[in-house]
Amino acid sequence: MSTELFFQYFSAGITYGFLYAIVAIGFNIIYNATGIINFAQGEFVMLGGMTAISLYPFMPLPLAIAAAVIITTIIGALVEIIFIRWLDNPSVLRMIIITIGLSILIREAALFVWGESVRSLPYFNGNSISSINIMGANVSPQVLWVIGVCAVMVTVLSLFFKLTTLGREMRACAANRLAATLCGINTRNRITLSFMLSAAIGAAAGCVMSPITYSQYDMGPGLAIKGFTVAILGGLGNSMAAVAAGLLLGLVESFSVMVLPQSYQEIIATTILLLVLFIRPHGLFGNKEAAALKEF
């Protein structure tokens, strides 16, 4: 295979890998704060994209995207405050069913607001046919936007969790909520913040990917499955591992086209998910002992 061809597959794989990683990180942030998987994560991505598309006719693109991210963040907060916050020590199963219900609720609301139609934001640079030549391969400039924005988000997030007080407090909540409360941290507020954060990054990803993948009210579940696969593959709760796992899945999907028909692509993620759950439920980079201590 020529380098040019290799790079074509590679760039597509990386683009998707980062998208999956962002969704997976959204899962992880909330998982770390609450111990549950928020199955409405894909809906945050959809809401970001669709809101930006609706706002775009009235304001410049960067403003529309910023507004969409803020609106989705507020929705994320509302979701937590209305549906999760008042639950007193709920079981994992109950919380998961609530998030599944939420995802259906948000999707139906989106169908009501935006209808069926497939929409997209304009390309940030050039249009749907412009491309730049990198190492002999033609890639759309939007691909660079996706990779860039996602990479920045991942870096900023990991710095946030490592270096800022707020970030450390959130990690403390994740490690031991009781101890965190005893130290004077308001754990409920940190959980709300985790929903806001994951809604925000989901929405931002939804905006940058919209020109490439289009946006539609029912795009959430598909993304959520991919993101969930990646989160599990990397090891739940570990954001850097999610990036590695995301890139792995993206690349596998992209290169699989050489041997498998594209229509089987959807199967790959599901197969990986099942294999990981059977063989290595703590993920590629996870710790078996640590996973065994967790409720879920």
Binding site: I212, P261, Q262
Partner: peptide, 17 residues
Amino acid sequence: NESYSPRATDLSPLVTK
């Protein structure tokens, strides 16, 4: 002869092929 999923969102690997 190739086919793609009706839910596909990006076909650049297929085009590359």
